[in-house]
Design a protein around this nucleic acid. Structure first.
Lengths: 179, 179
DNA sequence: GGAAACTATTTTAACTTCCAAATATTGGAT
DNA sequence: ATCCAATATTTGGAAGTTAAAATAGTTTCC
């Protein structure tokens, strides 16, 4: 038996040839002026689902979810291995409660430590442990080896995606036009 | 005070100019051959988060989450307004358990009915009610009015995104090259 | 110095997702 | 006829998300 990847559900296969083209066609029939945006949004949703499921499949053997990996990597990338919880939320662009949550789980596994800041006692500092660093290293290598689930996608195509989606981030106001 | 949109959390604003460019730079320093794919994946994740939060904000006044809306719309688009649970899962590309869940909630609100299939008693058929149809109609109009949260994005840019992401779906094997 | 306003984090509660296991039912092979 | 494998759905549990409220600590400004 080949090493058949256990696809998490993102791997579900639709029953029509291309559900997105099909949806676009249906939408065009009634609201032609919105069909392209609808298709773009649907494409993003589907791509995210596919990519996330592949990435989680790579991380799973290391005992990490994507959210956990991101938190760990963020800490591993800082010089001191320490960062205030709040700042982690901003960097990762997630809700503060989610940070509390992930760090809690990482802490229980001894991958991260937690301590009040000496400067401002409202602040809690998360610190990566040596074990956490090792795991982050390991997981990052795995993701690189797997080329983030899109080994078959040429780098130029990847760059096109980043460029095309920058337009979304601009239109939504996350980015200004000139970055 | 300006009418400051109450952004759901997807609206969180990062503290660096462009986190994705920055991550790309960091990655390039160590694993140059993977930086473009990493950035593409991160872009998709972030775009999804932004779009989902905008769409959910539009749907919220109608009492629907995106998942619920999709299920309702799927039923509304069929001729008979009826579909087996399993097929809904395939079409929506979500886990069967998620279908059970969403339909359960829609059922409790009287937007959908549920009945065992006369042909195969393993099968459960979900059927949209008149109230469900009305709501689907209403919500769809709202999404169109809001241009799916990307009114500011020109239709051509939207089409580029769909095209660029098709490459992902092909590379992952969801689509063959010629569709 | 103290009240009021603001900031950082956590808790709680409601949802959503997925996986894995349990339950039914069907249909094919002996 | 019956057993077994496949199929359809549900249940239970872990993880993640958000909004809103609670807690604690800092700052600002009279």
């Amino acid at each position: 038996m080949r090493d058949q990847v256990k696809t998490p559900y993102g791997g579900a296969v639709p029953d029509t040839p291309d559900p997105i083209s099909e949806a676009h066609r249906q939408w065009s029939a009634r609201w032609p002026e919105h069909a392209d945006r609808m298709a773009a949004v649907t494409s993003v949703m589907r791509a995210q689902q596919l990519l996330l499921s592949r990435i989680e499949a790579v991380l799973k053997p290391h005992g990490l979810t994507f959210a956990a990996y991101e938190a760990l990597r963020l800490l591993a990338f800082t010089r001191t291995g320490t960062m205030p919880m709040g700042k982690m939320g901003t960097r990762l662009m997630v809700h503060p409660a989610s940070v509390t949550n992930v760090i809690g789980r990482l802490e229980r596994r001894g991958l991260v430590g937690r301590a009040p800041s000496p400067d401002d006692r409202r602040v809690v500092l998360a610190t990566i442990t040596p074990a956490g660093r090792d795991l982050a290293e390991e997981a990052t290598a795995a993701l690189n080896d797997a080329a983030f689930g899109i080994a078959a996608l040429p780098a130029e195509r990847a760059a096109e995606i980043t460029a095309a989606l920058r337009a979304v981030r601009i239109s939504v106001g996350e980015l200004s036009d000139d970055q």
